[in-house]
């Protein structure tokens, strides 16, 4: 398949007329991720928004083979695919598991930790839309503090977001990366790299969600950019323990000035009840983590 001026495949693996919402951040990220992974990939996905995007029986919107699995079992399903393909001497296939934050941070963490500890040769992709969006925006452990969800409908989420990236790093993985659909080239590059590495690779997608976060579909790319500009979400990769900021985050660390977190909060309906104290605390925690990242990158 020919590449264009972005050096990205022209081939679309996601067919038009799928069920993803208008302006879906996952859809944009997934589109470029699949371009980087290419057709010699087998996917496994649990119940999630992605199940909906992949389509309802008997038609699928994605031209990559995919095995649906139960919510808690994503990484184990990938382990089974890897073992089965190896037993059959099919060694040229990349096994990729893709789960939401619920399927990663919450119900999927046991199987993920097990597969990572076993060094299973696969890529685990978490698309983090910070809640149970497919079931109607319930709180997950990835929901940020101050966000309204349908299960934190009055007081907002009180607890900080779980740092899944640190948890995955503690498994000693050969490759960890964060990506955001507002930066498709950075995303494409990281998926291409992840594909070339052996062992368990973890890629976390920041996936803005218009209906769940309360902003207009046209603003998905802008919200993603704001997340990076504020440092709410940081673009980096960790290769065999070597930490590196990438793309816009790298530029920001060198010379830029981060935008205040309040700009990010104001742009989304889910933060309309956040208290000044919560917002202030969030800004401090973003600052603290940013300093930590910059310090690591500087080493």
């Amino acid at each position: 398949m020919t590449d264009n001026l972005f050096k990205i495949s022209e081939r679309e693996y996601i067919l038009p007329g799928n069920r993803a919402c208008q302006g879906c951040g996952l859809s944009l990220a997934y589109r470029h991720a699949l371009k980087a992974l290419g057709e010699n990939t087998i996917l496994t996905i649990p119940a999630s928004c992605l199940t909906v995007l992949h389509g309802l029986y008997p038609i699928t919107s994605v031209e990559i083979p995919c095995l649906n699995c139960t919510f808690a079992s994503t990484a184990a399903s990938a382990s089974g695919l890897v073992a089965g393909l190896k037993a059959l001497n099919r060694n040229d296939v990349t096994v990729v598991a893709v789960a939401g934050d619920g399927g990663t941070y919450d119900i999927g963490i046991q199987a993920l930790s097990g597969a990572a500890e076993r060094g299973t040769d696969f890529i685990f992709v978490c698309y983090d839309n910070e809640g149970y969006m497919n079931t109607g925006t319930q709180r997950s452990s990835a929901t940020p503090p101050g966000a309204l969800t349908t299960t934190t409908p009055v007081l907002t989420k009180q607890e900080p977001k779980k740092d899944m990236l640190k948890i995955m790093e503690a498994h000693g993985l050969p490759y960890i990366a964060t990506v955001c659909p507002s930066y498709p080239l950075d995303l494409h590059e990281k998926f291409t790299k992840a594909k070339s590495v052996q062992g368990t690779r973890y890629v976390q997608i920041y996936a803005p969600c218009p209906p769940g976060w309360g902003y207009l579909p046209k603003d998905t790319v802008k919200i993603g950019r704001l997340a990076v500009e504020t440092g709410i979400f940081v673009l980096f990769e960790i290769e065999d323990g070597r930490f590196r900021l990438t793309g816009r985050s790298r530029v920001l660390a060198k010379k830029g000035k981060r935008v205040p977190v309040s700009d990010y909060l104001k742009a989304q309906g889910r933060f309309r009840q956040i208290s000044p104290e919560q917002a202030e605390k969030l800004q401090r925690s973003v600052d603290g983590r940013w300093d930590e990242y910059v310090k690591r990158a500087g080493k």
């Binding site: 382990s79 695919l81 073992a83 059959l88 099919r90 199987a111």
Partner: peptide
């Protein structure tokens, strides 16, 4: 044979499901 030493029975059956789907 491939022996997958999983972290739970839920995963043990999952591995069987995925590997059997792959044709093993």
């Amino acid at each position: 044979a491939e022996y997958v030493r999983v972290e739970s029975e839920h995963s043990a059956m999952t591995v069987c499901i995925a590997a059997s789907t792959a044709g093993a």
